[in-house]
Computed example of a mutant assay.
Amino acid sequence: MEAPRGVELSAAQGLLQISGRKDLKLESTEGEILLDASTIQLGNLPLGTFSKSSSRASHEQSVYEVCVCPSGKVYLSPAHSSSTCQAMNNICLWS
């Protein structure tokens, strides 16, 4: 969709669902993209690995941080006392 003064998608009540067979791209050339909701869910994010991982098994990990690769791909990484996001990991290198 394209319009000289903008496009607005809204649902006064109920679900607003946007889907595509392949990629769905949101792009702002002169502004920002704002996701304003009480809950924002990102389903099926890949799980990255952290090279200095603790001895705890992965099924015991309960807190993750959301990381972003230089390419823009989003993934989860086990949370520790400092960031575990790494640009040179299995997710970013093969995205």
Rank of each mutant, 00 (worst) to 15 (best):
S19C: 06
S51T: 10
Q17P: 01
G20C: 06
G43N: 15
L42D: 03
E8G: 06
L35C: 02
T29V: 09
L16T: 04
T49A: 12
G43P: 04
L45C: 06
I18Q: 09
K52Y: 13
L24K: 02
Q17A: 14
T49S: 14
K22P: 01
G48L: 05
S19H: 08
E8V: 15
G31F: 03
T39H: 07
G14H: 00
A11Q: 11
T39N: 08
D23G: 06
L24R: 02
A37C: 02
S19F: 07
S58M: 15
D36T: 02
I40W: 08
T29Y: 05
S54M: 06
G48N: 05
G14R: 11
S54I: 03
E30P: 04
S55E: 15
G31T: 00
L16V: 02
K52A: 14
E30H: 11
L47E: 11
T39A: 12
G14L: 09
S51E: 14
G43D: 15
G14Y: 08
Q13M: 06
L47C: 05
L24D: 03
L35V: 02
D36R: 06
F50W: 13
L47M: 14
G14Q: 10
Q41P: 00
G48V: 00
T29C: 03
I18R: 04
Q17D: 11
L26K: 03
S54H: 05
A57D: 14
Q17M: 09
L34C: 01
S58T: 10
S58Y: 12
Q41I: 10
R21T: 12
S28N: 05
S53C: 08
G43H: 14
L45T: 07
S55W: 07
I40M: 05
I18E: 01
G14N: 10
T29L: 11
R56S: 12
S55R: 10
I33N: 08
L16I: 02
Q13Y: 10
E32C: 01
R21E: 15
I33D: 01
Q41R: 11
L24M: 11
T39V: 11
S10E: 09
G20T: 15
S55I: 11
D23F: 02
P46S: 09
L42F: 12
R21P: 05
L26R: 00
E8K: 15
N44K: 14
L34P: 00
D23E: 13
L34K: 08
E27A: 07
L24N: 10
S10F: 08
I33A: 00
G31A: 04
L35Y: 04
S58N: 11
L42A: 07
F50M: 03
Q17F: 07
E30Y: 07
I40A: 12
I18K: 02
D23Q: 13
E32A: 00
E27P: 03
G14M: 09
T39L: 13
I40L: 13
L35K: 00
L45Q: 07
S10Y: 11
S51I: 12
Q13H: 12
T49F: 08
R56T: 11
I33E: 00
D23V: 06
S38L: 09
S19E: 13
S51K: 13
A11Y: 00
A12K: 15
L24G: 01
G48D: 04
S28D: 00
S55T: 13
